[in-house]
Design a binder for these strands. Sequence first.
DNA 1: CGATTGCAGATTGTTGACAATCTACACCCG
DNA 2: CGGGTGTAGATTGTCAACAATCTGCAATCG
Lengths: 270, 270
Amino acid sequence: MLKNPAPAHGGGAAARPPARSAASTRVRTPAPSPGNGADAIALVQSSSLPTLVQKELERMILAGDLPAGSKLNEAAVADLLGVSRGPVREAFRALEESGLVRLEKNRGVFVRQISVDEADEIYEVRAALDEFVGRRLAQSATPELVRELRAHVERMEKAAGRGDVDAYVTANLEFHDRLVELTGNAKLLVTYRRLVNELNLYRRTTLARSGTLPISTGEHRDIVDRIAAGQVAAAGRALYDHVMASRERMHKTRAGARAAPGRPAARKPR
Amino acid sequence: MLKNPAPAHGGGAAARPPARSAASTRVRTPAPSPGNGADAIALVQSSSLPTLVQKELERMILAGDLPAGSKLNEAAVADLLGVSRGPVREAFRALEESGLVRLEKNRGVFVRQISVDEADEIYEVRAALDEFVGRRLAQSATPELVRELRAHVERMEKAAGRGDVDAYVTANLEFHDRLVELTGNAKLLVTYRRLVNELNLYRRTTLARSGTLPISTGEHRDIVDRIAAGQVAAAGRALYDHVMASRERMHKTRAGARAAPGRPAARKPR
DNA sequence: CGATTGCAGATTGTTGACAATCTACACCCG
DNA sequence: CGGGTGTAGATTGTCAACAATCTGCAATCG
């Protein structure tokens, strides 16, 4: 039923030209900077309604506005974003291929729920990629690269020190994302991000807000040290082990939070 | 002006309804097996028009019926498959996300062309994954698994021996795909297949039919030997090196085919 | 009283039509 | 004769309506 900010104030939502300011979560045209002529052209050329809907839904899913397992109603989404159902359906197809939603014929689309087994698999794939990342970076490490990474680690430690869970999680994601980005391999980056997106889906599902926060700044420090020292194999192993250790921490946290709030479960499989 | 390198012969693929056997290239209902009641139900439930169109287009692209760079016309594809444009557009969105086509707003969709640089990147990612595959299989190798792999290698050698390029390429793809499948990690498998699909796209683009065939059965034999012996690190390294060597062979082949028979290249003004 | 069957409402699947944009060709002007 | 411009055709983007399917409730029957 799409139980977020309800678009109950439907009324004239269909008449779109005049009431543009009324609807709240519309697909906002991201053209805040004023005098950018050529830039705006490139943006309009690349942005179609389906693409914008896709981006917006992806943002909502990853932000947790749309909890895993919730149903996405075509008409509701279309109404909410001020478009018709066509572009919404196209966005759904893209999101399914990217692994964020699941389509059931004649039943609807649902935000995907990642099982423990699948999260395990993803962690393994991610570990394999990250090992490569570690080796690659250890080969091409420069002083400024190392300096940037150390700054990242420090930020994480600061956040962990003051118990700021959100800041720590964010910094952690950024640190690892930056590592992959620094390899300069764009394909590796998109592959990695796709996996991490699904992993985030899983994290939100289970340990929605388990108080415990698995800190692993020591491992991060070790990773950067190996990279800085140019120890190729060791850097790769450090990252591999770190990811696999994160997997274990996930298991621990999950086992602890098992008796947590009773979620309405999902639909019954048949 | 972004001139499209599409083949000059009338926009490539889509619009040729008459030559085909009647309108029979429709989305074929894939119900070849007869009296399977429950099976047919599951099939109907999972198959929607967009899904079938997507599968069919994917098949055509990977089979080479739709050469890289060619334009896909919505109406023509819809007509060819006997559906309306809606499902075709949804299939295009999914194919874009899977990396097989490229969407240009108001211009159309094109079968993607992989550049050498991008193929290089993909090879690297694939090598990282395959190293993990090698290690994993070396840990869990059983006699029957080894026997199956040896049969694969033999099939490849047979094909290579009689110069059957197509058979060799197919067997090679199957061998590597089977390796990944045997790890039992479904996520790894889909990640791997996505990369290989794009790689095939590249191969078709450049060495369309370069006579030379890079044979590497020796490496394959070595890989299986390491797995059979349970040499974890060595098996991983063998697969990593094999993929990276394939990358080099690709470069060689490409460089060799460069001065080859007249590619249209850049057309000069008359 | 419980289970089954039929019906009504809602949601998804698909289609055809309309509007916006791009491409190509002919025309006109210097 | 070359370059720029305007228009016609084709193609894509978006939408609203129709058809098929599913879900839930209620009435009926054993």
